Simulated assay, not measured.
Amino acid sequence: MEIEQQIAKDLLDIKAVTLSPDEPFQWVSGIKAPIYTDNRLTIGYPEIRLHITSGLARLIMQKYPTVSAIGGVVTAGIPHAASVADRLGLPLCYVRSQPKDHGKGKQVEGYLDKNAKVVLIDDLISTGGSVLKAAEALQKEGFEVLGVAAIFTYELPAGSDNFKKAGLPLVTLTNYSALIEQAERSNILTSDEKEDLLTWRKDPWGWR
């Protein structure tokens, strides 16, 4: 099984992803969504952690071969970033959502060489807001950010636009389209529900 399908199956198997087109979830942004994702669950499953670590490590070396450091986005990106940094033998840092309000007021934690070329890891991409803010924090401190690697993306148009505006590439292990296909193959979704879910991704604000 290819990594895209394997990770999609993993997320569905442990219910890190819940699909509910008939009773949508309310996101903080105000969007009503037929999907809810909690990839923090993955750290409790050693075999799935291994799939994610090995998959991200391969993907990063393929897409960002000059990488010299790994960064984790608070909080869900940190455990995966740590595992990938260990696998690749690279330095690790993590980026707070905002600078500390005490001590030295740091936002980037850990030590990186001033010439570090960083790949940021996050668990989930919707519009990309949090990880792109983390990238900005690293850039302000003089580090080069090569791009972002994540477990899963909703493939929302706003997310694609935001990464383009930031001038940063994004690579993911799996995505919304692959997950929906896997859910249909596993008889979690009917064909009508599948079409409804694909319609949501195209226009999440206007859906229903």
Rank of each mutant, 00 (worst) to 15 (best):
G105N: 03
T172A: 10
K104S: 06
Y154M: 07
N175A: 11
R58F: 08
Q107F: 01
I43C: 15
L112I: 03
Q62C: 08
K140D: 13
G105E: 00
D86G: 07
Y94T: 05
K63N: 14
Y176F: 15
A134M: 06
D113E: 03
Q139S: 12
S54F: 06
P46H: 11
L90E: 01
S83W: 06
Q98M: 04
K117E: 07
R96F: 13
Y111N: 09
I48K: 15
P79Y: 04
A76R: 05
A183Q: 04
N175S: 15
K165V: 15
G71E: 00
T66G: 04
Q182C: 13
K165L: 13
A150E: 01
I60P: 08
L156C: 10
A81P: 09
Y45K: 10
E181I: 07
G55I: 08
T66I: 05
D122S: 05
I70N: 01
K104H: 15
I52Y: 09
T172Q: 06
A82N: 09
L124D: 10
S83I: 02
L146W: 02
G105R: 06
Y154D: 00
Q182V: 15
S177Y: 09
H51E: 06
N162S: 15
Q139M: 09
A116F: 05
P46L: 07
G55P: 09
G44L: 00
T153H: 14
I125C: 03
G147N: 08
L88Y: 04
I43V: 15
R185T: 14
F143Q: 07
A135K: 01
L173V: 07
K106M: 13
V119F: 04
K164M: 10
A135E: 00
F163D: 10
S54L: 14
D113M: 08
E155A: 13
N115Y: 00
Q182F: 02
V74S: 04
T174R: 07
K63V: 11
L56Y: 12
D101T: 13
C93R: 04
A183K: 00
P65V: 09
N175Q: 12
A158Y: 05
E155Q: 15
K63E: 15
V148R: 01
S97I: 01
G147K: 08
G159N: 06
L88E: 12
T174N: 09
G89W: 08
D161Q: 14
H51G: 08
K114A: 11
R185G: 04
D122R: 04
Q107L: 01
Y94I: 05
T66N: 11
A134R: 09
S68D: 03
I60V: 07
R87I: 02
G71D: 02
L173K: 11
I52N: 08
V108N: 04
V73F: 06
K164A: 14
E144G: 07
K133L: 10
P91L: 05
I43Y: 03
T174L: 10
N162F: 09
S160W: 03
A134V: 02
R58C: 11
G71V: 10
K100N: 03
T153S: 07
V171R: 07
A135T: 12
K165Q: 14
S54G: 00
D86E: 12
T75P: 12
T174V: 13
V95L: 04
G89I: 07
A135G: 08
T153C: 06
L50C: 11
